[in-house]
């Protein structure tokens, strides 16, 4: 089992902490899903989210602070340092937004910020695209985890390019890979795990569901199903039927 900078996760679900109807519902979503990691944003809450941050600490799971809302290297590095102080963790989900409408990562600045932070002792979880070369550069910059998007943040569109994500899995067989962003349904999360991904990070799909607690549980079940399926070595798809009963005695059609 792959680890995330030496930490093995009891559950491959990483859950965001934004946009829930209330902190009480957030807490129940974590409890019901067994999510092992909580991502938390610092940018907007800077300066005084103490009570809310304490609630996140009290969840008793690993905290993965993020740099959501940062648009350049300097902002991201400053936010990462603040996160390390506030949550006393070297983990940082590095998010560098390049495009306002799609929230697509700016991969050039991402690589640069990843290098700076890795050299400074951070353990970087970069939010990236499914581009293989960017993935290579991030690893060369010191990252030991990659987090490609499934689809734009909050879009709920699932895995937009399963072909590219499969290629990424094949290209980096030993690197822990997390699908980050774009998950809308449990089937999307199961799909990610069936491709051999090591974890799924999601937020909006749970927080903005009509019943976030039930959706969190649905996601956890789907992720477990997808992971079991991948480990069980699924059959290959075929073009023609493969009879599960013998055909002897039936007419042979030429």
């Amino acid at each position: 089992m792959k680890t995330f900078y030496g930490t093995a996760l009891s559950n491959p679900l990483m859950l965001g902490t934004a946009q829930y109807p209330s902190p009480a519902i957030l807490e129940r979503a974590f409890r019901e899903s067994g999510a092992a990691v909580a991502t938390v944003s610092l940018r907007r809450e800077a300066g005084g989210g103490q009570t809310f941050w304490q609630m996140i600490r009290d969840l008793g799971v690993r905290i993965l602070p993020n740099t959501a809302g940062c648009h350049n290297v300097k902002e991201a590095v400053t936010t990462a340092h603040m996160a390390r102080e506030v949550f006393d963790t070297p983990w940082i989900k590095l998010e560098l937004i390049g495009h306002t409408d799609s929230l697509q990562p700016d991969v050039f600045q991402l690589v640069e910020a990843a290098r700076i932070l890795s050299e400074d002792g951070f353990q970087v979880f970069p939010y990236t695209t499914d581009d293989l070369i960017v993935g290579e550069r991030l690893l060369a910059a010191g990252c030991k985890v990659l987090m490609p998007w499934g689809a734009p943040i909050g879009s709920g569109r699932g895995l937009n390019n399963a072909y590219a994500l499969r290629a990424m899995r094949a290209e980096f067989p030993d690197v822990p890979l997390v699908i980050d962003a774009g998950i809308g349904l449990p089937s999307h999360a199961a799909h990610a795990m069936e491709l051999g991904y090591d974890a799924v990070l999601l937020n909006t799909a749970v927080a903005r569901a009509g019943d976030p607690v039930q959706m969190a549980r649905a996601m956890a079940l789907a992720i477990e199903a997808g992971q079991l399926a991948y480990q069980a070595d699924p059959i290959e798809a075929r073009d023609m039927a493969e009879p599960s009963t013998p055909v002897i005695g039936k007419a042979f059609l030429s």
């Binding site: 907007r44 809450e45 800077a46 300066g47 005084g48 989210g49 103490q50 009570t51 809310f52």
Partner: peptide, 10 residues
């Protein structure tokens, strides 16, 4: 915003 800093608007 989940923050308790009420000094100013951003």
């Amino acid at each position: 915003i989940e923050t308790e800093d009420s000094n100013r608007i951003t």
